[in-house]
Design a protein around this nucleic acid. Structure first.
Lengths: 353, 353
DNA sequence: GGCAGCCATGTTTACGTAAACATGGCGCTC
DNA sequence: GAGCGCCATGTTTACGTAAACATGGCTGCC
């Protein structure tokens, strides 16, 4: 049973310091400064029409009382909250956490706080529930970091009228999307391996449910086909190093396999381990490339050639796109692609003679 | 210049679908259901005193209009928000992001949303600014994931009257603290190495500003001293694999060094690389242990012996401790330690004969 | 049968802010 | 010098919710 607070006492006639400090409102400041609360409001919001001496009195009263504006009241008044909601599947992946960090940083710089709702199991119901909660919280907009095609199972779309930006998804035809240029990054990596002289490139893909994984796999296939190379059977992992390890063990057993493109760095780490344990040297016998360029990749054995992804920029553009929607014209759907760049390290080399 | 919205039109007499949907309030629902808004409130909050037929009418009206409670108004009324603020230095470290994820998950389960404010540079000013912002947002409590001793430079403490829980800090004498049992985890790792027969253990510490790093280094030193072993000079990194690599290069040059305890897994990764490049085998020549047990550690070359840290549990306890404060008696200071456990893998072995 | 009491429901009010409107005094203009 | 207008400031109101209080009809008891 939750204890109900006793009725609030009017002023701070309470035992000071003993009980909870009474919240200071504009009216309290106004009383102390001898002005109306409206004048306090004007001072608080930097509006004109307050003479300098009055303003100083008000400011003095504010700091004396420790006044803080109450955003609940302000939000009720304005109908908005200066808050951006972020709905995401999980923070465990490096990419997500760095994107969220960038979102939070840029949002803060624009005066917005961010509210996070993680969705453990990304079902339609759970995502809609998160949206409902966001609606209750009166966020000004929502950034969705979830594979939106998970939502396609039913006819229900995202709530209309809510400003939304989607990350890492193919929903570009329905919502504004910000995403890393998965296809171009993949092309750079695969072409790099072909240019080194490899006949073809094997691929350890991410899970089929992931659009990023599918786009990387699709681009990999396309590059090979356009170059007239054979397309080896796909290996699939779940983004984890361990899944990369098992895929790597299978690939290591195939002597024809001299170049592997893993869909992320962690799976590449597992591939490196599998190759090592199978006695195949990297890059002398087999070349390995990854995707993401996480900080650790430069310290793998050997340091990993990988596609650098600019998570911070993705986050920044999300916030910008959302604020543009909030402040002005409703942005239409479309995809904003953040470029990638190949970072060449020691894990790739020409194939063995 | 921000465009000011034209005055709101009363009902949805607006072009439907064209303009922004008018927010549905209790009054709208009440009107449709033919009851008072107070009755709607009672239904919305599951309070007794509403007859079944009336309740059904209200529920029907709610779903017909798509009513959502407005948390701004509710917060204004209640004086609280059902929101927990999290102030943190960065999400980039594995530990932080997983802790935040656990916090968000458990908070959500308790009906709380979380609001995130990252503090890029953890100065006193910035942290106080974040607290001010949290105050404005009327969060019910704050979880601080920042080395609190950074705040000790000045006399200013955290704002009084705000419920707060601190993670990963030595502020246990002033605030409730939840933390991994750094000392015990370190003891397990160092003793494991000594038990294997190593004469002593070298240490690659984290940055001196970090209390976690200091506590791990302190425990390392203590175990060695209690065992009567020599205490080798400390190597310091900044948590990154790259810094571990450079420390590792220095240690690899010392033939006496047969066992290394790195303060986190990523620095251990760098150490592994340095040893490899220096031609020293792991674990045949040198044993390496880490701290954190991040997912990748099992795929390092060789798989890393490390101290498992339960970030999810830390997050859970933070939320619990904070909610306890919010709902009931103000919890005093004190430290809640989450146990750790050593995970033995292939990177540790007896010293060379 | 009359009245007390209870239950379902309605009415009033307060939460803190800020827009819209009101007021009053002073200076400037003709 | 009288009136107009502007500027600083005050007053009213609305935002959506829910506690507190009010009402009115019905039941049950003596």
């Amino acid at each position: 049973m939750i204890k109900i607070e006793p009725p609030r006492l009017r002023a701070a006639s309470d035992v000071p310091g003993g009980r909870r400090k009474q919240r200071v409102s504009m009216a309290d400041v106004a009383r102390l400064a001898g002005v109306s609360s409206q004048t306090v409001s004007r001072v608080a919001n930097g509006l004109p029409g307050v003479v300098e001496t009055t303003r100083e009195q008000v400011l003095a009263a504010m700091s004396q009382l420790g006044y803080r504006p109450n955003s609940a009241a302000r939000s009720l008044r304005y109908g908005r909250f200066n808050t951006i909601g972020v709905i995401l599947f999980g923070l465990s992946s490096t990419g997500n956490s760095r994107t969220v960090e960038a979102i939070a940083t840029h949002a803060a710089a624009e005066g917005y706080a961010i509210t996070l709702i993680p969705v453990g199991v990304p079902t339609q119901d759970n995502v809609m529930g998160a949206f409902t909660r966001m609606g209750e919280l009166a966020v000004d907009g929502v950034i969705l970091i979830i594979e939106v095609h998970l939502l396609d199972a039913t006819a229900v779309a995202l709530p209309p009228g809510v400003h939304v930006v989607v990350v890492d998804s193919d929903a570009g035809d329905r919502y504004p999307v910000v995403d890393t240029d998965q296809a171009d990054g993949t092309r750079q990596a695969v072409r790099h391996l072909l240019d080194l002289g490899h006949r073809t490139v094997w691929h350890v893909a991410g899970p089929a449910e992931s659009f990023a994984a599918e786009r990387r796999a699709g681009a990999w296939r396309q590059v090979l086909e356009q170059a007239g190379r054979p397309v080896p059977p796909l290996e699939r992992g779940d983004w984890s190093a361990d899944s990369g390890y098992h895929a790597g063990l299978r690939l290591a057993a195939d002597p024809a396999c001299t170049a592997i493109f893993a869909a992320n760095d962690q799976m590449a780490l597992g591939v490196l381990r599998a190759l090592h344990e199978s006695g195949r040297r990297v890059p002398a016998d087999v070349s390995v490339a990854g995707f993401d360029d996480i900080a650790d990749a430069a310290s793998y054995l050997p340091p990993l050639t990988t596609v650098h992804q600019d998570f911070a920029e993705v986050g920044r553009r999300c916030v910008e796109a959302l604020l543009r929607q909030i402040h002005a014209e409703p942005a239409g759907p479309g995809t904003d692609l953040v470029p990638t760049r190949l970072v060449t390290r020691a894990s790739t080399a020409p194939p063995p003679a």
